[in-house]
């Protein structure tokens, strides 16, 4: 168990957990603001951003891709707002117009450009490749203290950790204004809070989380983690801070359980191959949500008879 686990499973597991928590944190506020589908939109438009960054720089490097993806997220938010106002249509439809178009453009660019030499394709974009992020230099638990071996960690791990720190610090820093603006935007505006800036900052945090996680685990985990753990946490409590804590717990549980089930579940059932970890993590988060919807103490809207 020991050496093999550290080399093959520890870093994908950690990356999965970090990605899940990073997405679940802003997801709480998106859910409460009824903007849950923003996460869906962002995780789609990240693709063209990454492809354009790749075409401009000609290589698969972290920083330009992050910038490209963040730029695409910003562009899509602006475009959605512009379409909504000019055409005077509901936000959902405007979102549907923009994110499908940008995603289609990304797919087309990807198919048209020569990316055969690099690890960039549509399937990878959708469900990532968590299992491949292994730590080749590890020989056992002792490698955790070995600087030489630590240098060989997959670069996604520190990047994901960095994204988590940024997202967590930003949310902690703007906790009060964010909470007020989330629950009662009008009240927040009368207090003089910059409501629009807060909204945009939250979307940008979500974009950061989506971009960092997308790189490591693909967009399907991103969408699932934006919505499922916060929604499950919403079934457990009526208070904001406990809800965020519950969602973090559910996110970690989904990532660990999903990864283990994907990697070892088929073996227990007698199959030779493992299944997609990203898909399994999303499935587990859905099962957790299902359980809380059936049994959670705060699952009902006020006013619905038990």
């Amino acid at each position: 168990m020991g050496a093999e686990f550290v080399a093959l499973s520890l870093s994908p597991l950690l990356i999965g957990v970090l990605a899940a928590v990073t997405c679940a944190l802003p997801g709480n506020f998106l859910l409460l603001r009824r903007q849950a589908l923003i996460g869906d939109a962002i995780s789609h438009v990240v693709l063209p951003g990454i492809v354009v960054a790749f075409l401009l720089t000609g290589r698969v490097a972290a920083l330009p891709m992050m910038l490209g993806a963040a730029g695409a997220a910003l562009v899509s938010v602006i475009l959605i707002e512009a379409v909504r106002r000019t055409a005077r249509i509901e936000a959902g439809a405007a979102m549907g117009v923009i994110f499908t178009t940008l995603f289609a453009a990304g797919v087309l660019l990807l198919e048209q450009s020569d990316t055969s030499g690099v690890h960039l394709d549509v399937e990878h974009a959708l469900y990532g490749n968590l299992e491949s992020l292994i730590w080749l230099d590890a020989t056992g638990w002792s490698s955790l203290l070995d600087p030489m071996a630590l240098a060989g960690l997959p670069p996604e791990l520190p990047r994901m950790a960095g994204a988590l720190v940024i997202v967590a610090l930003a949310i902690a820093a703007m906790w009060r204004p964010l909470a007020i603006a989330t629950f009662d935007e009008g009240f927040a505006a009368t207090l003089g809070l910059p409501v629009r800036a807060i909204g945009l900052a939250l979307v940008m945090l979500a974009a950061l989380a989506a971009v960092a996680a997308f790189d490591a685990v693909g967009s399907i985990i991103v969408i699932a983690m934006f919505i499922c753990p916060p929604a499950a946490a919403r079934m457990m409590t009526d208070r904001l801070l406990p809800q965020v804590m519950w969602s973090v717990g559910f996110a970690i549980l989904s990532a660990v359980l999903g990864y283990v089930l994907a990697g070892y579940g088929p073996l227990w059932l007698g199959f030779a191959n493992s299944v997609s970890a990203a898909g399994m993590i999303a499935t587990v988060s859905g099962l957790i949500l299902g359980a809380t919807m059936l049994f959670g103490p705060c699952r009902r809207r006020a006013g619905i008879a038990a």
């Binding site: 903007q35 399907i220 919505i227 919403r234 191959n273 493992s274 898909g279």
Partner: peptide, 29 residues
């Protein structure tokens, strides 16, 4: 039956069903 709003319900069903589908696709592979 729950307090979730439509956008959350759509997003949850979308991502979970799609995730399960991906799992099944890898089984097929």
């Amino acid at each position: 039956r729950t307090r979730l709003t439509e956008d959350a319900a759509i997003g949850a069903v979308l991502s979970v069903f799609f995730g399960a589908g991906i799992v099944i696709l890898t089984v097929i592979q």
